[in-house]
Design a protein around this nucleic acid. Structure first.
Lengths: 186, 186
DNA sequence: ACCTGAACACCGTTCAAGT
DNA sequence: ACCTGAACACCGTTCAAGT
């Protein structure tokens, strides 16, 4: 007895990540354990540690991969108002694919620290075009990130919009972006 | 052996809540366990269950008590812009007292569901005074809650403002509230 | 009424041993 | 190189027994 717990094939990183993300989608990060993941993969729990440092490294890896998927950048020729809207919508769309994973990302900012470079690289030119003074751009970027990420989080976590359908939620998000654009003077 | 593990005095709910909150402040919710809490109280872990249903009920109780502490309401004679600023600042001040506890509140909205009634009761008249149409007030309230709670969360969690001092963080928050007021047409 | 010890069903992770 | 079982140090919680 040794080979057949797993059906012939060897364990791959790909397979581990995919299965882990699926389980997070289904039962949340709280519901995922290394032991259950191993059971799902039909493997001894300890086999996982041959491919992954530990649970946190596994989760970080999964989150990183998804953060990288942000659609960038909106065409620079568009007015800044439109670019901001497109960016905000892209960010929100990203989070709706794997809401449970994103709840974890929000709760553990160290995971994505300095890895959302693409986002900031697009945001600053937009603020420049909106006429935000150089000295205020970092601050304004922080505020906008806090607003949009926070609103999306409040939405996925269920702080707001309880009992509303998807279209209503979309309208609320658009109203939010409108408010931001108006607040920036556009 | 029986009486002296605890020094004479009996366990009280007060004592349990206070000690638990202190431990959350120190090591976060993740670092709090029923067993460690019992050790801190010099008591058998199972004694806690005589006073508290389970860990989640304990945490919910602690959070509830603190949510209730929101300073309300700003004087109704002030202009709505000023009332909104005061409300936003009060909300932020509340979260800075026990940031680790608030990270938990944000991640578990079911805890405070329908318990922040005071906040909404003050917010709607402000929106009315700001000229937000009746049919849009619920939506606008959601957006504002998402913005402010989200920004504060981003701040306490460390998503934004990394390496900045308290004064700088205050200025960022004021800029955020300014943007909201402008966005509302004020 | 309040507290306790032993026990159950879980965790993440290490380590020495197997192929 | 890859996988495994046994073990360690933890969890939350139940239950029957103690005072």
């Amino acid at each position: 007895m040794a080979v057949s717990a797993r059906r012939g094939t060897p364990l791959t990183l790909e397979e581990i990540y995919t299965t882990a993300l699926r389980m997070v989608d289904e039962v949340g990060v709280e519901g995922l354990s290394m032991r259950k993941l191993a059971a799902e993969l039909d493997v001894n729990p300890m086999s996982l540690y041959h491919h992954v440092d530990n649970k946190m490294a596994l989760l970080t890896q999964i989150c990183d991969t998804n953060v990288q998927r942000l659609d960038l950048p909106p065409d620079e020729s568009l007015p800044w108002q439109e670019r901001l809207r497109i960016l905000a919508r892209a960010y929100r769309r990203l989070t709706t694919d794997h809401p449970e994973m994103w709840r974890y990302v929000y709760a553990h900012p160290e995971i994505t620290a300095d890895r959302e470079g693409g986002l900031w690289g697009v945001l600053f030119p937009i603020l420049e075009a909106a006429g935000v003074p150089q000295g205020e751009q970092r601050r304004t970027a922080d505020v906008l990130y806090g607003f949009v990420a926070g609103l999306v989080f409040a939405e996925t976590a269920g702080h707001i919009g309880q009992g509303q359908d998807a279209e209503e939620a979309d309208r609320t998000f658009e109203a939010a972006v409108d408010l931001i654009v108006r607040g920036l003077g556009g």
